[in-house]
């Protein structure tokens, strides 16, 4: 287990490094940062000046290493727009995004897992078809349009829920609904197929042959086995959901990291964009690492290794 954990952590670090390099290279090759910093009203000389100051003439790898060194010290550069350290800006924004994301994930699990269990227990039943319908629709509905539809219905036609900002719990309802619906289909389908294959196993047959109650068989024996892969999936979904928060946050005007990213791209605030992309990626790496660890801890067969 310790060995596995160490190997897994090492891989995660390697991955983080690689992803950060991609992020850096992307922004580096994409545009002339000096011109961006100087702004549109600048001359070529201004840009040249800035290039000197920031060391933009150094080779990519040198600049990257310098950047990584700074990042490791918590310095993500300065925002060109806010004129202050990026790290100071994005922390609170990330907190908002993560908060909405967690609520959305909980919401998605609360709906998807029971539905998936029921669908897997009674395949091809009415409830299975209903669940499949919800999943198929959920996978096809573009989240920004779904968000607008909800606003039309719940904020305009029946004005019961606010459509923008984050103040009271009411503000959370629509964004959580949209984000949650986004990750529900995958969780539902995996729960369903996991339950179906778990219910076909020999140990479930043994449990039934021993007269265990259906509830125990379903929720303690089958679901527990079906839930293991759910951990990885949910964490990945959570990662995708956060990365997808750009859209939802811009529709609902939520002051989160996604909206900041969108605005920063519009303002050509490259250091901020770079930092946000990096943070989203690292967050995903961290999430999958945690999920693997949790998996290993919960599965006695993994625990031994």
């Amino acid at each position: 287990m310790l060995n596995y954990a160490l190997r897994r952590i090492f891989m995660a670090c390697l991955l983080a490094l690689f992803v950060s390099f991609l992020t850096y290279a992307l922004i580096f090759t994409a545009g002339d940062p000096a011109a961006a910093i100087a702004g549109s009203a600048s001359t070529a000389a201004d840009a040249e000046n800035i290039r000197q100051i920031y060391g933009f003439d150094d080779p990519l790898i040198v600049q990257y290493l310098r950047w990584v060194g700074n990042v490791l010290q918590g310095d993500l550069g300065n925002s060109l727009y806010f004129r202050q350290p990026v790290s100071e800006i994005i922390l609170s924004r990330f907190a908002v995004t993560a908060q909405v994301g967690i609520f959305a994930l909980i919401f998605a699990m609360l709906i998807a897992v029971p539905l998936g269990v029921a669908a897997g227990r009674w395949p091809n039943s009415l409830i299975d078809r209903g669940a499949l319908f919800i999943a198929v629709v959920g996978q096809a509905v573009p989240s920004f349009w779904f968000a607008l539809l909800l606003i039309i219905v719940f904020s305009i036609t029946f004005p019961i829920l606010p459509s923008s900002g984050l103040g009271t719990w009411r503000h959370y309802v629509l964004p959580v609904l949209v984000l949650g619906y986004f990750s529900m289909p995958a969780i539902m389908r995996l729960t369903r197929s996991g339950m179906i294959s778990a219910l076909e196993t020999d140990y479930i047959r043994t449990a039934r042959a021993m007269g265990l109650s259906e509830r125990r068989v379903l929720f303690d024996y089958a679901l527990r086995n079906a839930a293991l892969p759910l951990i990885s999936l949910s964490s990945a979904q959570f990662g995708f959901m956060l990365a997808g928060s750009v859209v939802v946050e811009s529709v609902f005007a939520i002051p989160g990291a996604g909206r900041l990213a969108w605005e920063s791209i519009g303002r050509a605030d490259l250091p901020t964009v770079q930092a946000l992309v990096l943070c989203f990626s690292l967050f995903y790496v961290l999430l999958t690492l945690l999920a693997d660890m949790l998996n290993a801890a919960l599965d006695p067969r993994m625990r031994m290794k």
Binding site: Y203, A209, M210, Y221, N225, L298, R301
Partner: peptide
Amino acid sequence: IRALRGNRLSMIFQEPMTALNPLH
């Protein structure tokens, strides 16, 4: 029938490697 199974009427299966729940 559930009250009978495992109580008054039990069964042993062919494949011991997979007959037990791996997580308990």
